[in-house]
């Protein structure tokens, strides 16, 4: 049998190559062979994701590679999820996130990029899609006991709706229960501060870092 290090290296390589089929195939194999899934994730897949981050930082990887790798990681994690949940193992979950594009806006490319990166990085992502009303974000966050709400807007005209979600959270007495992260082409740090959001992701990677920091800081009631 192939030694474990070679196996881990192939898992990492599948993620680096953005090959979702190979990543999921190796995951199914690991599952069938009853390998220690926690070890497989941490020593196989995560190093691949880390390497992708390094390649991005070095300017060698661009968005098509980055997002394909995120998709490969997501495909592998999806294979493991039922088994991890059944065993009660922590897996990789870093928190639950409700994400969507704000009401009036059906552009969802930015939101999809962020959602992919969040999933790949171990967040449990509830994607509400686009054109989402303020209260629907909040209802979904309550129902799924989410930690974070991520609001995307592409248009200068719809970004104004991000403020509405924060206002509705306040009106419903739920502002302290969820952290709110905003993003989108026209969104700036100043805008996030103005509407009282907790964080702002300038791009998909920054959003993941922000989400990780916010999720870690959050005390779940």
């Amino acid at each position: 049998m192939e030694d474990m290090n070679t196996r881990y290296a192939r898992m990492a390589e599948a993620v680096v190559a953005g090959d979702a089929e190979a990543a999921a195939g190796l995951a199914r194999q690991a599952l069938d062979e009853r390998l220690d899934l926690q070890a497989v994730i941490e020593q196989g897949y995560i190093p691949g994701l880390r390497r992708v981050g390094d390649l991005w930082e070095a300017g060698e990887y661009f968005l098509p590679e980055l997002i394909s790798s995120a998709a490969a990681m997501k495909a592998a994690l999806a294979v493991f999820r039922p088994a991890l949940e059944a065993s009660g193992a922590a897996g990789l979950s870093r928190g639950r996130i409700v994400i969507g594009t704000i009401e009036g806006d059906i552009h969802d490319i930015g939101k999809n990029l962020v959602a992919s990166m969040l999933s790949a990085n171990g967040f449990d992502v509830v994607d509400l899609g686009s054109d989402v009303k303020a209260d629907r974000f909040i209802d979904a966050a309550v129902e799924t006991r989410a930690d974070l709400i991520c609001l995307s807007a592409l248009l200068t005209t719809t970004m104004l709706g991000q403020r509405r979600v924060v206002e509705r959270l306040r009106e419903r007495g739920l502002r302290d229960r969820f952290k709110v992260l905003v993003g989108g082409a026209p969104v700036s740090r100043a805008w996030a501060a103005e509407i009282g959001a907790d964080g702002y992701g300038e791009n998909a990677l920054a959003a993941v870092k922000q989400a990780a920091a916010l999720a870690a800081a959050k005390v779940t009631p």
Partner: peptide, 9 residues
């Protein structure tokens, strides 16, 4: 022409 580095337009 979408910027594949910055994600901008």
């Amino acid at each position: 022409s979408f910027d594949m580095r910055k994600g901008t337009t």
